[in-house]
Nucleic acid binder design. Structure first.
Lengths: 288, 288
DNA sequence: TAAAAATACTCCATAGGTATTTTAT
DNA sequence: ATAAAATACCTATGGAGTATTTTTA
């Protein structure tokens, strides 16, 4: 294996074309430099310089090595910085999942400012429901995820940063005569499948149906946009986070309901996550 | 400066995640390997492994270094082969000039077979007259050149490989009544400027005009193609190498003239040329 | 408690230094 | 004649070995 030091020494001679001055530049004496270059030539089985006591010139092979070694040494010199950047979370990879609701909240802004702060971190985004995220964490496919859950019932086994608690509001089809609260509660419900987030699902049904009353499910859907579309088609009503009111849709109006359940949005990650994750968490905690 | 050996040792541990087995793979004992990795970590200022007596795992920085070091070592390992290839003339750069006539001779075939034989040699071609080539050699812009000259009068100060001697033939405008040889000799001459190749120019004029007779210059031109075009326009006659007869052109016929001067085509190069040049010379000498 | 990493020390290969000789202009 | 590379020989740093201890699953 050719080492880097001999290449560095060779480059000094190749540049100055003078063993004595090259040795000076390398802060060493001339004889060991001569030896090192000769040893390098022996290792390569190739003459690198045409020497006489009056002139030193590069052979074609020497010219080729000069180009190759310069590149190699530049890469080697950059390596520690890159590794340190990864260790400090300023470079690397961050695979981030998020539930669709946060896409309507602060996520776009946080991502934008994070990319500015850490441009060397490559971000891989993936919209996924809570259940899918949990599987992705288990499979090691994602590094962090924004999830939504009932307050105080965050997924277990994760580090967590809460980014806000908000009430659910009722999304209902627009109509000439606004229905009463009771009518709203009696309407069919548009909701995500229970397995996506059981505790949140149960909390909504409990509240919507009152104390154990039968609740009619109008349609199940996963994407927030789809749920709102179904409401606009008067298939039923839906409980959505208050921040969703930013999503205006013809034929849909929102109504805050007294005593409505609250939901919490959290960023979760494994405790053994990479420094890039820690950077991102810290970034979100400052901007949320 | 990070050296390559510690990186290699690190990679072994990173792959096997076991200091003892990695040491075995490296044909060394475990303690110095542990030391080397710790020293590397100290140099980088970064922890590369999470160690316990039961498990060794890569940190994110370690994962990053694994990728970087793998690439760096692969390049370092390839370096000797590349340098040796350049030294043997199997790789490198070859800047080749040629006078336009050889473009109609063997050059295309030689180039094609040379590219097959030495695909790693990057060929830079340049059509140039003898005088331009001599300046390019002096300026270090070309490595070898095909030139045409009177036999025994090759450019001085070069290594040389003759690739053939041939007579000049007369290119003349086609006509119903073929002119006599004497008429041909009396016709205006289409020829290159004298400074392009003085000795060849003088030889042509001496022969064409006979013993010091006045010779009329119809037009000067440099490119062979242009000279033939001028002949076809009946501006005059031209002496061209016999091999040029391969270039058929409406309105132009060729006539071998007894006692016509001969020209020699040679490949010339500096005696300190690169191995790639030597390869090329050797290739041409076998195929010419 | 047992497997594996860390520590303590010893040794030697080799990078580097000094003094000198050889060589080519 | 002289500048510069090569040679000869010496020194010492640090990479690698052996023996042992510490750690944790």
């Amino acid at each position: 294996m050719i080492e880097l030091r001999p290449l560095q020494q060779f480059l000094a001679v190749a540049e100055l074309l003078h063993f004595g001055r090259a040795a000076q530049a390398l802060h060493m004496s001339q004889p060991p430099l001569t030896q090192a270059v000769r040893k390098l030539e022996a290792q390569l089985g190739v003459q690198l310089f045409e020497r006489s006591s009056r002139s030193v010139r590069l052979t074609p092979a020497g010219t080729a090595l000069q180009a190759l070694a310069t590149r190699l040494l530049a890469e080697a010199a950059a390596l520690p910085q890159e590794v340190r950047a990864v260790a400090r979370g300023l470079a690397g990879r961050l695979r981030l999942a998020f539930v669709s609701t946060v896409g309507f909240g602060g996520l776009p802004l946080w991502l934008r400012s994070f990319r500015e702060a850490c441009p060397q971190v490559s971000l891989a985004l993936r919209e996924a429901t809570l259940d899918v995220q949990l599987r992705d964490f288990a499979a090691g496919n994602i590094d962090a995820g924004f999830v939504i859950h009932t307050p105080g019932d965050a997924p277990a086994g994760f580090e967590r940063l809460s980014v806000g608690i908000e009430p659910l509001v009722l999304a209902l089809p627009s109509s000439d005569r606004p229905p009463t609260d009771a009518q709203c509660r009696a309407a069919p419900l548009v909701i995500f499948p229970r397995e996506v987030a059981p505790s949140l699902y149960d909390a909504i049904l409990t509240h919507h149906g009152g104390a154990g009353q039968g609740v009619q499910i109008g349609q199940e859907a996963i994407q927030m946009q789809t749920i709102i579309n179904l409401v606009s088609a008067a298939i039923g009503v839906a409980w959505v986070p208050a921040s969703l009111q930013g999503l205006q849709r013809a034929g849909v109006s929102y109504r805050a309901m007294p005593g409505a359940p609250e939901v919490e949005t959290s960023l979760i990650w494994r405790s053994d996550a990479s420094p890039a994750v820690a950077r991102f968490v810290e970034h979100v905690s400052r901007h949320a």
